[in-house]
Design a protein around this nucleic acid. Structure first.
Lengths: 336, 336
DNA sequence: GGTTGAGACTACAACGTTGCAGAAATGCGC
DNA sequence: GCGCATTTCTGCAACGTTGTAGTCTCAACC
């Protein structure tokens, strides 16, 4: 069967523990011994059995990434960034999708799968502040997204409010005064939707533009389809508008499509800006202005924090809240 | 620490082996005993240690999905489909990206990571027929994509040639006679590019349209950006054309964008059809006709085949080649 | 020359589970 | 009620690794 430490030890003429020590970079080994062992490893093509290592040491070198849905370009790009950051640290990533709401999220969080991994990156979708106690266990975890603040776990997020304020201000600075907001979750205060709506309102206030509730378009699920449908409904109401801040790019793209079908010119009639800077925004017609949340930075920061928690399980350092930088990316949809 | 079989056994008043038997659905257990054990499991919240199970039984319940790049919508959607199919069978999925070419692919295939998983779904990108011997090992594996046929492993793919023929014929049936092909890999016979070019030529021949090499646009990497650049270069040549078969949707979308910038109307001046049926094609402007390769069917078939190989490691049944169905999806880009 | 200590290596046990072999209890046929 | 097969349950060993606690050697020191 597979080569084990025993085989290597026999060939090199040392104990299995010495082989183990070589592999784990234990310092006190004579160069000659190290060489012998390494030669034997190469000759046999030895590969450590990760299950055994994990059983004995309690570390598997695998982390979980819990996201709502890979079909959503933002999460696919985030997953890509996380996997690159993780691989740079020698970690593998198990992705779990959780499209099924709160019950499923809790089930997955408590399932036996989570036993296998050293830590969890959890992009919270359904759980809210009131569920924070469910996370209050020993498992190293870093939260992404914006449903839970001041929770028991480290938290990495973009600056939602500031980002939305900057996006809105960007359209206002172009002279637009009837700026719609697409993607609100009515009644929600926390969560990306609530925070971004807050930023939208702040920007209006700063420019002295009166807030008009009829310009706020609610969309629960932030997919392209939902953005398209919400915009279609909004257009039938006939509310005049000359700008659109969409709370993510997918909705923006869906909405742009509907607006153009309806004969609206972008950016001439309506200037549009989205959120996330997904790849597609560079190639849509027109290309879409957006807020770049620095996905790479989010991923790297999150992996670093998680690794720290994994390596110092006893450190009861308080949970940290980190916000990454964002950048306005101006493209054709808000060209002057 | 974590609850083990010992804790459950103690509480239920049975041996740990009996608990293990209950968990593994061993048939000869008295209902009363089973009940006692299950009650103890529930009370303690016992969860099996997957590392120990994997070490002892050689099965981890995890499979690997090796794909080039999650940023590519086709692979993100394929990964989504695979993960849903895998979860339905009780499997977890570790995704590994391999953007780095042949050397990296072989490294990952041989790396210690692969030791942890029960089987591999491998969407071959860089490896070719000549590397097939590298796969000739005991690891259960199902190949996706079209670089390696008649290899040592099971293989699931779409009907590339037939799909391309249908796509091309679709444009010809609209009366187009100068149909360009975007995404060829010059000199390649096997692989999606080669097969699809073949189907393109077959369709031309069947309709009695002469093959014109100047209508074949080579693109090595099938991203949106590459499609856009290739189309830009093609337009400067001034070759007249009224139809475009793109070998995937991303390239088609990039090319559509460039064509529209150049003032070409779609479908009036150029009818376009792509490949993959990614979500975005429904919402692009115009929406993009495409060949739907039945990603769900590919994923389910591949997972089923893999599971079969995992469960019958000694069956030396010969490698199978399965092709899934495809469908033409007509949208605005090839509307009559 | 004896003590000390660091360096280099090793033996053993343990991580939590399951396969195997077998023991004890039960059922069946006559 | 006896032999035999089946059901039900158990003890032990093993999977391959690493942590702990050593042993042994040799140089340095007083």
């Amino acid at each position: 069967m597979a080569i084990t430490l025993h085989d290597v030890a026999r060939l090199a003429g040392v104990s299995i523990k010495t082989v183990s020590n070589v592999i784990n970079d234990y310092p006190h080994i004579r160069p000659a011994t190290r060489k012998k062992v390494e030669a034997a490893i190469d000759e046999l093509g030895y590969q450590p059995n990760l299950s055994a290592r994990s059983l004995r040491s309690g570390r598997s070198g695998v982390i979980s990434l819990l996201i709502p849905d890979l079909r959503n370009a933002y999460f696919a790009e985030l997953a890509d960034a996380v996997m690159r950051a993780a691989r740079a640290k020698g970690l593998s990533v198990i992705i779990e999708q959780m499209p099924g709401g709160k019950k499923e999220e809790l089930e997955i969080l408590r399932g036996p799968r989570m036993q296998l991994v050293d830590g969890i990156l959890y992009s919270v979708l359904a759980l809210g502040e009131e569920d924070a106690h469910h996370l209050d266990n020993a498992m190293p975890m870093v939260l992404l997204g914006d449903r839970i603040f001041n929770g028991p776990k480290d938290h990495v997020t973009m600056q939602n409010t500031e980002g939305a304020r900057a996006a809105t201000d960007h359209l206002l600075s172009l002279g637009r005064r009837r700026v719609a907001a697409l993607g609100a979750h009515p009644g929600e205060v926390v969560g990306s939707a609530g925070l971004r709506l807050d930023g939208y309102q702040q920007a209006l206030a700063e420019r002295g533009v009166e807030y008009d509730a009829s310009l706020v378009i609610p969309v629960i699920s932030w997919h392209r389809k939902d953005g398209a449908e919400a915009m279609r409904a909004f257009l039938t109401k006939g509310v005049p508008f000359d700008g659109l801040v969409a709370f993510n790019d997918s909705m923006a793209l869906g909405a742009m499509r509907v607006m153009q079908e309806a004969g609206l010119r972008i950016p001439d009639d309506v200037a549009v800006i989205g959120f996330d800077d997904i790849d597609e925004t560079r190639y849509s017609i027109p290309s879409l202005s957006t807020i770049d949340p620095s996905k790479d930075q989010i991923a790297e920061t999150a992996v670093d924090l998680l690794l720290e928690r994994i390596e110092h399980p006893d450190s009861h350092a308080p949970a940290r809240d980190l916000a990454t930088e964002f950048h306005i990316v101006q493209r054709e949809s808000s060209a002057i």
